[in-house]
């Protein structure tokens, strides 16, 4: 069965994933919109940066974040000056790392959905007196619902499953930065296969349910 420590890691994982997903949607949506709409020549660069975590080994991203947010890194010095201390090996640290690492999983489905509705609904809304912001919430969001759903599910699931970046940036501190994937690793290291089985099964079932929700309950998605 799941021990108390295991339950604590499950709870922490859930907390990290929820918070990261909210932040991912808040930052990912404008980035995706900008990428679809902009004629800027920086578009390619930003696109590449956002997609970087897809191809980069998590340890590489984790390593650079560790250096940047550490006491001598520029981000670290800034957070210290702001009185926040340094981010590595804290809850805040793994949130920042998770958001960066899962960004492409949120930005790309949104980008696809935004591009798919085309120019026309925006023009129609403008001729009906809707400002750009109004148009975004009254027309774009409802028309790209399935894109938001995909982005949310993928962002959440990917954060839950993250291991390398969290280990690099967060370490292995019980109740603070020790998430499920790290706990499984601990159990296996300690030859506690039964415990590892329980947690691994939890993640397996969770992932399957998530994908089932995505493809089963969203018929539109299946058709496209």
């Amino acid at each position: 069965m799941l021990s108390e420590a295991d339950l604590a890691t499950l709870l922490l994982t859930l907390k990290v994933a929820c918070l990261a997903t909210v932040l991912l949607l808040i930052f990912g949506t404008p980035i995706a919109w900008w990428l679809v709409r902009t004629p800027s020549r920086w578009k390619g660069v930003v696109n590449a940066l956002v997609a970087l975590p897809l191809v980069l080994p998590p340890t590489v991203l984790g390593f650079y974040l560790l250096v940047l947010m550490g006491p001598v890194g520029p981000v670290g010095q800034l957070t210290v000056q702001l009185g926040l201390g340094t981010l590595p090996f804290t809850f805040g640290g793994i949130i920042v790392a998770s958001v960066l690492y899962s960004l492409p999983f949120v930005v790309q489905p949104l980008q696809t959905a935004f591009a798919a509705i085309g120019e026309r609904p925006l023009e129609v809304a403008a001729t009906l007196r809707a400002s750009p912001l109004d148009t975004f919430f009254s027309v774009v969001v409802p028309l790209t619902q399935h894109g938001f759903m995909t982005a949310t599910v993928l962002g959440f699931a990917h954060t839950v499953g993250e291991f390398g970046v969290v280990l690099m940036v967060g370490g292995n501190i019980p109740g603070k930065t020790r998430v499920v994937s790290v706990q499984i690793y601990n159990h296996v290291e300690a030859m506690e296969y039964a415990q590892a089985h329980w947690l691994a099964a939890c993640l397996l079932v969770f992932s399957f349910v998530v994908l089932l929700l995505l493809y089963g309950l969203n018929p539109k998605q299946g058709k496209h």
Binding site: R120, V124, A125, T127, L128, T135, L143
Partner: peptide
């Protein structure tokens, strides 16, 4: 465009697919 008091009828169907006819009419 949104600050111009005009009505525009496009060539092809331009109704908002996520709204009923009544809500489409009410939009503007």
């Amino acid at each position: 465009t949104h600050q111009r008091a005009l009505g525009y009828v496009f060539q092809e169907a331009s109704l908002f697919a996520h709204l009923s006819v009544r809500d489409n009419l009410n939009y503007g």
